[in-house]
Simulated scan of single mutants.
Amino acid sequence: IQKWAIAILLSVSAGIALTTSILIGKSESKALTRPWFSARNVDVTAPAWLRGGIPVGNIQLPYARIFIIVLTILCLVGVYWFLNRSSWGLRIRSVTQNREMSACLGIPTETVDALTFALGSGLAGIAGCAITLLGSVGPNLGGNYIVDTFMVVVVGGVGKLVGSIVAAFAIGTVNYLIGSGTIARMVEAIPFVSDFFEFFSSTSMAKVMVFALIITFLQIRPAGIFPQKGRSVDA
């Protein structure tokens, strides 16, 4: 009965989606879709309390970026507490290290999967809201961050929160030092080294250099800075 119910619901939902898309597609004005779906980026107006900044010497720290930093710290603290101090966090870590043994001990692995997916989706939603404060929003907004995100996870160690934090700081710092030309200016006394880093002193070329360094690092430590531990991993 459950399989038949799922099949019927899927058929009905597919029919509704198809009918709705046809009706909207034939609409001349497309007033319903134009404000929401288009190739153009949309500017998001920040609240009044996030406008402006704090002057520090010759620079100004925007309130929006300070808010994003504080929000990130709160999310990190919350995730750390959840994974290390709650019973469901213990179940998540158990399933991550040894799924079969966790199931034998009575841990609902499918529920853990759903909870983990919900947690990740919620954090992604928070990150998406935070990114809107940095610029316009469009369909390809995530493409600017997806590669860096994967590099952070792989370098830090899959499943390691501390590793992701350390890797994010390391990759971001190295990317800035190379892309801004800081390293090239630091080694001006050595002409050929300075010319080498000067060639990579741009945003796009700095990413290429960082990517090459990450590949070299993973050849030495394939599991990342903080490798995952467990019986299934050691086996």
Rank of each mutant, 00 (worst) to 15 (best):
F200L: 04
V152R: 08
T182N: 03
L50Q: 09
S38N: 14
N140M: 13
D148I: 10
G224C: 01
I8L: 13
Y145D: 08
A124W: 11
S180E: 07
K3A: 14
I6E: 12
A17W: 07
V77M: 11
P222R: 04
I24R: 10
K160C: 12
L32Y: 07
G159H: 02
R99G: 03
F197R: 03
K3Y: 09
L61K: 05
V158A: 09
C75L: 14
M209I: 07
I1N: 12
W88E: 10
V162A: 15
G230I: 02
M209Y: 12
S87W: 11
F150S: 04
A14Q: 05
L115G: 09
L90Y: 07
T111G: 11
I220G: 01
Q97I: 08
T45D: 11
A118R: 03
I225H: 00
R99Q: 13
A39R: 14
V12I: 15
A7Q: 11
T20L: 15
A170V: 14
I73S: 06
S94K: 05
P55C: 04
A114K: 12
T19V: 15
S94P: 03
V154A: 01
V70N: 06
R65S: 10
L18P: 00
K207Y: 13
I92H: 06
V193K: 00
S102C: 02
I1M: 15
P35H: 03
F217P: 08
R34T: 12
R185H: 09
R231V: 15
V42Y: 08
C75I: 15
N58Y: 05
R40D: 12
R65E: 11
F37V: 15
W4C: 03
V233N: 05
T19M: 13
L119V: 14
W36V: 15
